[in-house]
Each structure stands twice: as structure tokens, then as C-alpha cells.
Amino acid sequence: MGFKLLSKLLVYLTASIMAIASPLAFSVDSSGEYPTVSEIPVGEVRLYQIADGVWSHIATQSFDGAVYPSNGLIVRDGDELLLIDTAWGAKNTAALLAEIEKQIGLPVTRAVSTHFHDDRVGGVDVLRAAGVATYASPSTRRLAEVEGNEIPTHSLEGLSSSGDAVRFGPVELFYPGAAHSTDNLIVYVPSASVLYGGCAIYELSRTSAGNVADADLAEWPTSIERIQQHYPEAQFVIPGHGLPGGLDLLKHTTNVVKAHTNRSVVE
């Protein structure tokens, strides 16, 4: 069995187990497998329904001669939608809004960016022009300005110390501490036991640490421990890039980060 097929099978099995364990909360999309990078042309966006009122959005972007996937989250909030992270750029984010209108038909009224990198804030200006209120932590807003990236308009308070959590509509926002970046936030959907790890969490097929220019490698494993301790009931975990899975993604990420750190020390 090929690795790609095995990865998709694991996603399907995880979703099936969740649907059985929580039949009222989960209505997993039966329309197909989780979209992969090879299936999404740059400039297009796919939506994948995880649970009743919960979707991931998947886009792709060219970077350094390669094409990478990027995940975000959409959560229903009454007759409105909360968006977590842009679709990595203005063109993708405009396509995301169009796809949401086509498939869901509810307005996106608020959006949260989970850290300051372009795959999370690139497209904020498109959201703002569409009347979406954009939010991020003060740290993310400051770092985005320093980096020359787009800056969300509103500040999220109460997320300055490791372990801080605040309720934001249908989700809980959690600051686990520094990891992929010093400002990275985690998003949890309690009604569906869905954990969105953003770039602080890796997919299972990833074996290298990737972009760690703004990471705190020493603190990252401790931050992941905080996530595990705060959300032990999480059933569906979405990484910032690639295929979702279960809580095993947290341990896998820790292993990859520690291996990278150990290699760096040896070198």
C-alpha cells in the first residue's frame, strides 16, 4: 500500500471513529477524501466538511520552486461564519470567499490569524475590503508590521502568557507558548472536538522541520505538551499544512522538532 493511500485511509478511519463516538456532533463529509496538494491548482481553494458547521479550507501556493498546501478553518456561528487564517495570499483568499459563498452561503463576518507569517495573514486586506472584521493577538499584529505583512485590524486580548485561553464565538483560542513562531495560536472547536494546530503542528508525513527561522526550538516541545494537557479530548487535529489526523500529530511534531534540534547540535 502506497504512503499517500495509507495517509488518506488514516484520515478516513479517524473521521469514521469520530462519527461513531459522537453521532450528534459529527456529520463528516462523505463526498470524498481530504484534498491534497496535487489536486488543488494554485489560485483555487477546496472546502472539506469535518463536522456539522465545521470545515477546513485548503489552498496551495508556490514557494521556492515548489507547491505547498495550506489549511485553515471555518466555523459556523449562528447565521454567520468565523474564518481562521487566510488562504495564503490575496488571490487565494478572494477564491476562498467565493467558494464559501458557493458552498455554504453564509457571510464571513470575523477572521482570526493564528500567527504573523504570510500563509496566515496574506489576504487580510481582501477580507477587510469584503467587510470582514480581522483579528490577531497584539504580538501577531506587531510582528506582521515588522515583517511588512498585512496586519489584522483588531487585537485579541488575554493571550499574552503561555497557557492563556479565551473564548471567541464558537471557538476557544489558546496560546501554548512559542513553537513554530513566538505568537502562534491554537484554535479548538469544543462542539466538535476539532483542534486546529496551525503551523505549530505537523502532518504525519512530514519528517523535516522546514521553516524554523522564527521558531523557538527549545520551547516548542513544552508548548505541545500544554496543548495535549489542555485538549486531551480532541479527536480531529488539523495541521497548518497537509493531512489531518488525531492527537498523534502532536507527538510526531515533537519528535521531528527534537530530531532537528539534535542534528543542529551535532553539526
Rank of each mutant, 00 (worst) to 15 (best):
V121T: 04
L143E: 09
V112E: 01
S223N: 02
G43V: 08
V187D: 01
V212A: 10
V171R: 00
P170Y: 03
I238M: 15
Q103E: 08
N149W: 09
G2N: 10
D216M: 03
A215C: 14
A178H: 03
R110M: 02
G32E: 11
Y188R: 02
A90Y: 04
A59L: 13
D29Y: 07
S113M: 13
I17W: 04
N211Q: 04
T14Q: 05
F168R: 02
R128F: 14
Y175T: 05
A98D: 02
S62W: 03
S191H: 06
F63S: 05
L24Y: 14
A59K: 15
S162P: 14
S7I: 15
G131E: 08
R110Q: 11
C199A: 01
Q61K: 08
A87S: 04
S7A: 08
G131C: 13
L195H: 01
A130I: 15
T207Q: 03
D29C: 08
K102C: 15
K91A: 11
T261P: 15
L159Y: 03
K258C: 12
R128D: 09
V28I: 11
A19F: 04
H117L: 00
S70A: 09
E225W: 03
N92E: 10
N92P: 04
H230E: 05
L6P: 05
Y175W: 11
P232Q: 04
V171L: 03
F236W: 08
I100D: 00
D164A: 09
L10Q: 13
G53H: 15
A165Q: 10
L185K: 01
G78I: 13
G177L: 01
K8P: 05
D85N: 08
I84N: 02
I100S: 08
I40A: 05
E225N: 02
I227A: 07
D216F: 04
A136M: 07
A94I: 06
L243W: 09
G177E: 00
I17T: 04
L195W: 00
E39N: 03
S30W: 10
V121P: 02
S22A: 12
N149E: 07
I104R: 08
Y231Q: 02
V28E: 06
A111W: 06
D77S: 10
S22T: 14
E157K: 04
G53P: 14
T254M: 06
N71V: 11
V187S: 11
P239H: 01
S16M: 03
